[in-house]
Design a protein around this nucleic acid. Sequence first.
DNA 1: CGTATGCTCAAACGATCGTTTGATTCTGCC
DNA 2: GGCAGAATCAAACGATCGTTTGAGCATACG
Lengths: 204, 204
Amino acid sequence: MNSSTSTKERILTAAEALFAQRGFDGASLRQLTAAAGVNLAAVNYHFGSKEKLVEQVFKRRLDALNQHRLAELAKVAGKPGTKLEDVLAAYIRPALELSHEGNGSLFMRVLARAFAEHDDTLRQFLSENYGHVMKQFTAEFARLLPHLDKAELYWRIDLVTGALTHAMSGFGMIQRKDNVTEQQHREQTAAHLIRFAAAGLSHP
Amino acid sequence: MNSSTSTKERILTAAEALFAQRGFDGASLRQLTAAAGVNLAAVNYHFGSKEKLVEQVFKRRLDALNQHRLAELAKVAGKPGTKLEDVLAAYIRPALELSHEGNGSLFMRVLARAFAEHDDTLRQFLSENYGHVMKQFTAEFARLLPHLDKAELYWRIDLVTGALTHAMSGFGMIQRKDNVTEQQHREQTAAHLIRFAAAGLSHP
DNA sequence: CGTATGCTCAAACGATCGTTTGATTCTGCC
DNA sequence: GGCAGAATCAAACGATCGTTTGAGCATACG
């Protein structure tokens, strides 16, 4: 049924890369299928439409991300010794580590782009996949920050998410230097982000 | 030469709104000119091309934003009594207040979208318009945070910018309630952001 | 008044888009 | 081997895109 990698998988990988570079509208199916080495009609045959393909590109990565995040959260949630930094690490590290799986760093740009596209159907799709994850994290944050009321906590988590999204997309001034590996850079980013977020979350 | 508002101005205003809703690629010149009440050919006549129009949409707002930011910074930079929150206010408030000028809130989405689009020419354009502003703010931050080395400071400013961009675009969980005006909501956002950023910037 | 200039307009151009079609090739099973 | 269904292919479809064209209208100046 498959060659070394299936047509479907090759399309998803090429789509992720091309969407990251050119955007969802900017990347045409002709560029996409050419990069994947498949026929133009393959996308509509396997996915039904370009829009469905976009959803699948997201689903493939977001399912893994959410699973990873919740697994890390489960290790520390509710435990007596848990620190704020531990929960932040469970929230932040899986997102940044997504770039370690093949071509995952491109997905970060896709994700950041999706946030900006502000497309309602896509936004709803993300909300459905993110909703229960955010709920669990918020509950644990609330446990560790009992002096904050709910509204105040929501504000601060939102700002943390903003900083994380920004850092994930790699748009900022901070660029990886040639003498550090991508993994080292990611760990630096995570460490900075966790300390920054912890200070921003817990200040009186 | 002009009607009540000139064709050029009507195009710019309609473009800003439509770009925010549909994106740069998603908004067609036919939708745009129809919304502006002008002829289809007017865009190419007055701006030369769609791409030039995009640049002008940015330039109109970014010039005002940079001017406003630098004016606020000049009030506090180098002064002995200046607090970190004062510099952050000069950095953050003009960005959020951009939404008070007509239809300015739509521009925030356009800006956030431009960050995500990652288009190199647009990125370079933003860098050229932002570069000297960031330099001046960074210098003042460095003065008030002498215990941070340059690399550490860059990291933290980058994260602040991420949180600001996120808050500006209004993508987060935090939505304006019906019982608060837009101005009140913007001031709440600014206050939260400044305190959050101050804690994240100045932590040991 | 005549004319030059700036602007607007309907119409068309070529290009590219996502999608569909129908024939062809590949694959697994009896 | 032969057949059924899945998969791939080249080709074309209609729609929409940004841009260009050339005629028509307005305004200002001699």
